[in-house]
Design a protein around this nucleic acid. Structure first.
Lengths: 205, 205
DNA sequence: ACAGATTATATGTATGGCCGTATATGAATC
DNA sequence: GATTCATATACGGCCATACATATAATCTGT
């Protein structure tokens, strides 16, 4: 083997830079400069900017998965509470960034798919994984009658995940947490409302 | 005055190119080449790429406003029907593009705010205008008891608009219309469901 | 109605800088 | 001694913008 590798250093700098300035609009030189490593180490370690993008995506989602573990999968709480805690935790981290950054995965979802199929396909996989803990929380809520069972839990899970990304898109434009708060207000009063209090009885056959 | 101007030609080419390849990742040369005009005409007419971006945004939203006029503001239909018709119309146009393009305004919302405050502020204004017809439809639905009046109509309007953008984000990644259909399924069964004994959401009043 | 000034835009090219990638050479590890 | 990676530099190409000049349409004064 060779020496100790700057891979980690470049990766974590890459997440910051891509998150702040966008992946497509950041140059390889921005990444290596932020990591304070020579430029050649970039190609040595990742081969291409596209491959680096995939590595960045994976690493970012690992961090997200930690948050998911502490919130969405925290079975000490009820399922609706778990969902609320996930959204609140993300809100807090968005606030820390001055409502400026949004979600790197969401950002790359609108940037990359027209340029790179490899990145697009990785995004498909990530969203498929991401959906699961949402779907489990929704199923659990339906099982304990905290939520009406009229709707397909996978539909609801995907809806929540996508809608939350829409809220973060608006957050970036408005530079305000209000879109996130609005999302929570509406969702917990309707889609995730307890059957008795909800105004959602559509009499599905 | 001078001669007849390539402004329109560049603008409409710019919408296509920016929609297909992204605004930030397209070059001025891509725009002028697609418009088949000499490069100097770009700066002559728009001054800078940033100013051009704003012009593109405005023009794109004008087109959207036509669709809004034929659907969301079509008072021949009931308010819930108007909302459905808007989403269906956009879905159809997304399908025509092979689920590849999404919404240019949404795309630029994640691209531009970190690079250009001028574009970000224009986006804020556009979203503020865009919200209005949604809010009016929601208010109308609440007034004729097609919708519970529990929620702030502006909250619901912003929620729908943002959520729809989230659905289009997923559409771009999945290259599929399913995220849009899912959005409609969930929204019309919950947030936009009739308060009590709804018959069918597709039936005419 | 006509000549000339004025203005807006066309047109082509130049500029300085950044882009992603490739590749040599050398050092450290197995 | 093979391998892996650090390190530095090089490459061809594209970037947004600036600018000099040409040309067509309008305005002005007569």
């Amino acid at each position: 083997m060779g020496r100790s590798s700057y891979r980690e250093k470049i990766l974590s700098a890459g997440i910051s830079i891509a998150h702040e300035r966008g992946f497509a609009t950041s140059g390889v030189r921005d990444f290596v400069q932020a990591a304070a490593v020579p430029q050649g180490s970039f190609i040595n370690n990742f081969g291409s900017k596209e491959a680096f993008g995939i590595a960045v995506l994976d690493r970012y989602f690992e961090g997200l998965d930690d948050i998911i573990g502490q919130t969405l999968r925290d079975e000490a709480r009820g399922p609706i509470e778990r969902l609320r805690s996930y959204f609140d935790t993300i809100s807090a981290s968005c606030e820390q960034a001055g409502w400026r950054l949004g979600c790197l995965i969401g950002n790359m979802s609108l940037e990359a798919p027209n340029h790179s199929d490899a990145i697009r396909e990785r995004l498909v996989r990530i969203f498929a994984d991401w959906k699961q803990p949402f779907a489990e929380a929704v199923r659990a809520a339906q099982a304990c009658a905290d939520l009406s069972a009229d709707l397909d839990p996978d539909d609801v899970a995907e809806f929540l995940l996508a809608g939350w990304h829409g809220a973060m898109l608006r957050m970036k434009v408005d530079r305000s947490g209000e879109p996130l708060e609005r999302f929570k207000r509406v969702v917990f009063a309707t889609v995730l409302a307890r059957p008795a209090f909800a105004s959602t009885s559509t009499g599905k056959p």
